[in-house]
Amino acid sequence: MLKVVKIETYHGRIKVLNNVSLDVEKGEIVTIIGANGAGKTTLLSTIAGIHRPKSGQVYLGTIQTSCMPVQNVVKAGISLVPEHREVFDSLSIIDNLKLGAYHRYKTDKKSINDDIENILSLFPALRGRESQLAGTLSGGEQQMLAIGRGLMAKPKVLLLDEPSLGLAPLVVKEIFDILVNLKKRGTTILMVEQNAKAALKVADRAYIIERGQISLAGRARDMLQDARVQSAYLGARLHA
């Protein structure tokens, strides 16, 4: 479904992504684990069309999206839920959701109310507060809104940039449970995380990114058992 081939992305003269390749199959949750500054956000931004890679390609199905402007990438079916949520604080919840459907608003007007209804059933915490300003929500609720807004684009692949960032463990669990729910409904998800434990528990497959390079790839279940992963990302001590 989503295929990233040998991407190299620069910030100015600094090479941030070095020969990164990965793929995501339809209906999978794939996670990319990495420390702060490893290049996770840059990778998702490159896939979403915000940064242009110096070399390499991104394919969604058979369409090459890596040369498109952001709005065309969204139209093609890639939707990014950014780091720090970035909701429209001074707009209402309902307006945030409606704006998520921007690229299909003209053609798909009739279905939008039904889609909002679906999102609200997925995130009951937002229901009944549709006219409340997004800026007044708690961090967890804002994350739910940001994911809901991303889903309103009806993407083929949903990209999530550190959905657990700054949230209490219980809230993280609530949100990751929703991701599992989404997967059951057929949504394909590529998620980057520093919270390796939570991410590996819900993911099918995982990649480890270190200083802009993929250093390990495999099934998430196996990674949870992997000694190197445990010591570097799961806070476990190596057995003597």
């Binding site: 979403a48 915000i50 952001v70 709005q71 969204v74 139209k75 939707s79 990014l80 950014p82 970035e86 909701v87 429209f88 604080d89 001074s90 707009l91 704006l99 998520g100 921007y102 690229h103 807004r149 684009a153």
Partner: peptide, 10 residues
């Protein structure tokens, strides 16, 4: 309100 997020909406 948020130019970056607006771009992400397409």
């Amino acid at each position: 309100v948020n130019k970056f997020a607006a771009r992400l909406m397409g």
